[in-house]
């Protein structure tokens, strides 16, 4: 698989304020790629530069394929019906009229309603249908499920998975970490106009980037001992808690010591950091 999008040393300034400071990454064809960052990190500017709706000062962007864009803040004339909008964009894009796109996204049921009467979720579905009508290779989704109810989110997630199965590349920005974890193959976290992390969600939540907690409940009180590979033992709701970067070594060590002390283990839990915690560490604290 080749690259769907390549961004090299992208620089974008608004007056004296440099928002993107030499940003580089590539999204592979057929993957779902998430661009994350705190507000002001530069992710919307990055997306808009790639989408071609904003110019940039320096660097290079290569887009290999037709793009379809669903913007986070987007609007249409208040009195246009969903069907008229779908047809208008379709004709300008010389796309074959395929109303099943509307139906698949659940937009067929409100196709004759005027834009001003649509709910936020219905508007999002309509904008996604418009983004898909010319069969793009790369689809940009900015906060795709914002404002959708649970049913709408599940339905849209399924559509996004179907698009991936069809070989489309999806670039999405989202604040919903559960959505990112469930959908995305790779994640890029931006901080102050630069890339702070690039990898899979497993890599992000894995040992390398942070600590995990081992919680152990034993039959008797654990005698004072110190593990080589962890911070000292503490108590959390009747569980002994060990915070460590190296789960296997710490676990082996503590189980050995408990066995030597003839103290039976009643329960063991391992808690790894959530994507949200890792995101906060990287995007906010710069770890």
């Amino acid at each position: 698989m080749g690259a769907a999008i390549e961004v090299e040393n992208l620089v974008k300034s608004y007056g004296n304020n440099t928002v993107l400071k030499g940003l580089s990454f590539r999204a592979e064809q057929g993957e779902i790629f998430a661009l994350l960052g705190a507000n002001g990190a530069g992710k919307t500017t990055t997306l808009e530069c790639i989408e071609g709706i904003r110019g940039y000062n320096d660097g290079k962007i290569i887009v290999n394929g037709k793009i379809g864009v669903q913007l986070q803040s987007s609007s249409l004339p208040a009195n246009i019906t969903a069907l008229e909008a779908f047809r208008l964009f379709g004709r300008w894009n010389k796309a074959k009229e395929d109303l099943t796109i509307l139906d698949n996204l659940g937009a067929g049921e409100f196709k004759n309603k005027q834009y001003r009467t649509l709910s936020t979720g219905q508007k999002r579905r309509l904008h996604l249908a418009i983004a898909l009508l010319h069969n793009p290779d790369i689809i940009f989704l900015d906060e795709p499920t914002a404002g959708l109810d649970v049913e709408g989110r599940i339905s849209l997630h399924n559509e996004i998975r179907k698009l991936k199965t069809a070989g489309k590349t999806i670039i999405m920005a989202s604040h919903d970490m559960a959505e990112v974890e469930s959908l995305c193959d790779r994640i890029a976290i931006m901080k102050e106009g630069k890339l702070a992390f690039l990898g899979s969600s497993h890599e992000l939540t894995g040992e390398y980037y942070g600590e995990s907690k081992i919680l152990i409940k034993t039959e008797h009180q654990v005698p004072e001992f110190k593990l080589e590979c962890s911070v000292p033992l503490s108590m959390e709701q009747n569980y002994y808690c060990i915070t460590t970067k190296n789960i296997s070594e710490a676990l082996l060590e503590i189980l050995t010591k408990l066995k030597e002390a003839d103290n039976e283990v009643l329960d063991i839990k391992i808690e790894r950091a959530t994507l949200e915690q890792r995101f906060m560490e990287i995007a906010k604290e710069g770890k």
Binding site: E51, G52, V69, L71, F89, H127, A131, H134
Partner: peptide, 16 residues
């Protein structure tokens, strides 16, 4: 209404 709001963005990315 069309050119000062988000409609122009939708038109631009939508190929109009």
């Amino acid at each position: 209404e069309m050119y000062s709001g988000d409609i122009k963005k939708a038109f631009k990315v939508g190929g109009i």
